[in-house]
Design a protein around this nucleic acid. Structure first.
Lengths: 351, 351
DNA sequence: GGGATTAGTGTAACCGGTTACATTAAAGCA
DNA sequence: TGCTTTAATGTAACCGGTTACACTAATCCC
């Protein structure tokens, strides 16, 4: 294998500065007094030799990695950019590094999780990338973990950060019913076992109940929170014998793009023939034609909050066990509202 | 500090299995024969004790981290999602981890680079996050580095991956001149020292030259490749005494969003009054109103190519020193073209 | 002035793995 | 049968830091 050019170690520095390695270490870490004179000598030698402390060795000795891990299943959708950005901001503020692993127990369960107590000080886990067994295992080791977009199994005391899904969805669906008179509303599920999808569906059902509209299982499709799958699922729906519909809740904004396309191909107009609404308020949602009515989720803030929580955990500060960030519905034209939003996306009608 | 619950080590496993640590290590790494019987015993003990090899210790002993680093200055724009996604795909395919650091020598130069030979096996560096001195330093240690969206200083033999900026820009500007009769074209620069910006400006100048249009320095603005800065810069331009203009090359797509907004506020129509063109073909560009004419840069592929190159370097395979990925102009409506693109963004008129 | 404290330093064990080298027993071969 | 090869294993040094403990000399305090 690659033989690294033998690098200069703390012992080299010690020898050249005519002191012990302990003294050099103390100088570097400033955790014990070192005389002025010796300090200067060490400083000079370090420069001369271009010495860089060996991160890995230090990690082994101190059992602290100054790194946090993030597990996500992939980065294929726009959703992850603001999430990552929020996490990254807090991580670098704390002078930590971020180790990113794409891992999903459903597809990688034969492979051990590449992130854990042995290479990070704490872990952020998105959605259902880890299963309960893995979480239990980490919990048993008292390893700091914060869950993102999923709640923790109650017997594990793992803090989590997610967004308010149910009430916002209920409000959005109610809006379709009350304001726009829609009654046959398609619901597109996300990936199964995705909690967001579950709660959004509850909100959808609640809204129907509230207005006395019976739930119809053949209005439930699977959009997978992704434009391509949503397009395909909706095409299949249109092709087969299906009940009439006058609105679609696409589950998330990315799926709405696929639905827009399928509707266009079918010659159906949005919002005249069909109201379309999404969830997330992704960066491009206000640019769609028509602009997409959706629920604004503070994804960047989800990331930063989760990361902040993780540092609280790592530093053993008291923490908030569960954080449910508020969402708000954003009315644009795709539901049938006629608001003109000048200068989108800078201004939105929010309520 | 946090005292980790003492974890089970290879010596514990060895003791319980009544073998030496070497044998356990061999069994784990499958790099020397171990008898069937002993193998089973070790396997069982590992399960019983829930033993997990200590990544850091292994890294120290083998001097291989199975991790690659990525240095970017931030993740604030949409540009990074496809880049990261491309990198990530190749990294996880190679069963490596990805360590992400946001670092910029201009703002962090007092702080040492958190990524290097001591915690990664190779490094991807975006644009001008690292300065020449830092690159030289890494080069001297023969540390594998691949540059993204910048060329390497010639005396350092560092491979790089970037996109074809100049010819595409020249073609795009020529299109504005020849097809749409534009002659007073604003050019928005990106961040100074950004190579992409430099080459795009060269392409812009070449196109002017080619058509005998004199270069006007007061048509050069600074958009910073970002919507907010571009909006502000363009507002300032409009507010002061300025030469007439009939087109804008915004430097990149994100900046185009800010320009769109400022134009709308000024009551100028796109493309009737002003042609607007960008660069990148970001995910939302085809959704803008009007859809943005731009240059398609294979950003995902830039990421995957750079990562693949880095692995070639790490594994000491022969490599391509410089990779210039092709770009193509994408005509939509913002320049004045009248193509109807059915089902944007799935189909584009590309040429 | 004598005991207690503190500044400044060194020695060596330790973190948890890998691996060069040595050793023994079994298998292969003439 | 005797010699060489190979399978299987153990011992201990090593990777490059940190830090507990020991020690000396100087300073403080009553």
């Amino acid at each position: 294998m690659t033989r690294k050019s033998s690098s200069v170690t703390i012992r080299d520095v010690a020898r050249h500065a005519a002191v012990s390695v302990a003294t050099v270490s103390r100088f570097i870490n400033r955790n014990a007094p070192v005389s002025q004179e010796v300090a200067e000598r060490i400083q000079q030698v370090m420069l001369d030799l271009n010495y860089k402390p060996h991160t890995t060795a230090r990690q082994l000795a101190t059992r602290r990695t100054l790194t946090v891990g993030l597990v996500i299943h992939n980065m294929h959708t726009d959703f992850f950019a603001p999430l990552l950005s929020g996490i990254e901001a807090v991580v670098s503020e704390n002078q930590y590094n971020l180790l990113v692993a794409t891992y999903d127990y459903k597809t990688h369960h034969h492979r051990p999780l590449p992130i854990g107590p042995h290479n990070t000080d704490g872990l952020l886990s998105y959605s259902d990338c880890l299963n309960e067994e893995q979480l239990t295992d980490l919990g048993r080791q008292k390893f700091p973990v914060v869950l993102i977009h999923r709640t923790a199994p109650p017997h594990l005391r793992i803090p989590f950060v997610t967004v308010e899904n149910k009430a916002a969805t209920r409000k959005l669906i109610s809006h379709l019913i009350q304001v726009h008179g829609r009654r046959s509303i398609i619901f597109m599920r996300g990936p199964s076992e995705q909690e967001d999808s579950y709660w959004r569906e509850q909100g959808y059902r609640d809204a129907l109940d509230e207005h006395g509209i019976p739930f119809q299982s053949d209005l439930i499709l699977c959009g997978e929170f992704n434009r391509t799958a949503a397009y395909a699922a909706f095409k299949r729906f249109l092709a087969r014998k299906h009940p009439p519909f006058d609105a679609i809740f696409t589950g998330d904004d990315d799926a709405a793009i696929g639905v827009f396309k399928a509707l266009k191909e079918a010659g159906l107009r949005v919002p005249e023939d069909v109201s379309v609404v999404g969830f997330d308020d992704a960066r491009l949602s206000s640019f769609l034609n028509p602009p997409l009515t959706t629920v604004r989720a503070p994804t960047h803030q989800v990331g930063s909050t989760a990361a902040a929580l993780l540092f609280d955990l790592i530093q053993e500060r008291p923490i908030e066990a569960c954080t449910l960030l508020p969402t708000e519905i954003v009315l644009r034209r795709s539901c049938g509202c006629a608001y003109e939003n000048p200068g989108e996306p800078f201004y939105d009608v929010v309520r």
